[in-house]
Design a binder for these strands. Structure first.
Lengths: 121, 121
DNA sequence: TCAATATATGCTTATATTGGCATATATGTT
DNA sequence: AACATATATGCCAATATAAGCATATATTGA
């Protein structure tokens, strides 16, 4: 399938959409356990969805010790516009999404010098 | 589900993506039978996919006699950006998509004064 | 080297999606 | 009114997807 179609497809699922939205709002890489904590989704699901997002070419992964850091991959025009479309969603009226963003801030506050020190919460 | 997620989802399927791409390149409304002819997809499938696209808020429908005309719905910021992302897909290297666009031109050439006169081909 | 931790992955089941086919509906035509 | 045509839709079977659970892998630290 055309890679761009794949990108729309993977974004068209609630959990994956939430992951990407959180990473966009974070503007920095997050590890799996942080996402798990922010989204309140089991680790194995977060990992699976991250894998799909990565293979579709929307995210990048980097190893850092025991952790795997994931971040937005916007090194091409298509991705940039796609993320811009997500950014244009004003109505984060959705309760789940709203809570995700609150949890994101809480999680980031647990970092020390912007480094992950608390894993599961 | 958040309406925007639904929009990504419906675009994340080959046939629906093709429909939208053809409508974008056409820059005008097309009827079901034209799309059927252009895409080489059975009428019932074209209709079903059009229905999903309409309900997701990506297309508009208008009755014209026996025909139902479908067109791009870009009356909001999110849709505009989404369609822009499709427009940015340079690599219409995909053979199917390339053929669709050829067929689109052939079908449009069958119109008389920009009105549909030939139905199934 | 052993244990603990972070993450990934295989298997199974539940659910959703898609296509095919038949048929219903609506509109125009004779 | 009967018929033809354009389109939509209900049902079924095939396939794809997602969650849950158990477990494998990799890395760190004792």
């Amino acid at each position: 399938m055309l890679n761009e179609i794949e990108k729309y497809k993977v974004l068209g699922e609630q959990t994956r959409f939430r992951i990407v939205m959180v990473l966009l709002k974070a503007s920095k890489e997050l590890c799996v356990c942080e996402l798990e904590d922010i989204l309140n989704v089991p680790q194995y699901n977060v990992s699976k969805h991250l894998s799909l997002l990565k293979h579709a070419g929307l995210l990048e992964e980097r190893k850092e010790g025991k952790l795997r850091m994931y971040k937005i991959k916007d090194d091409n025009q298509f991705n940039k516009i796609l993320f811009k479309s997500m950014d244009s969603i004003k109505a984060v009226s959705d309760e789940t999404l709203k809570q995700d963003l609150v949890n994101l801030q809480k999680r980031l506050a647990l970092r020390k010098n912007d480094r992950v020190v608390v894993t599961r919460n």
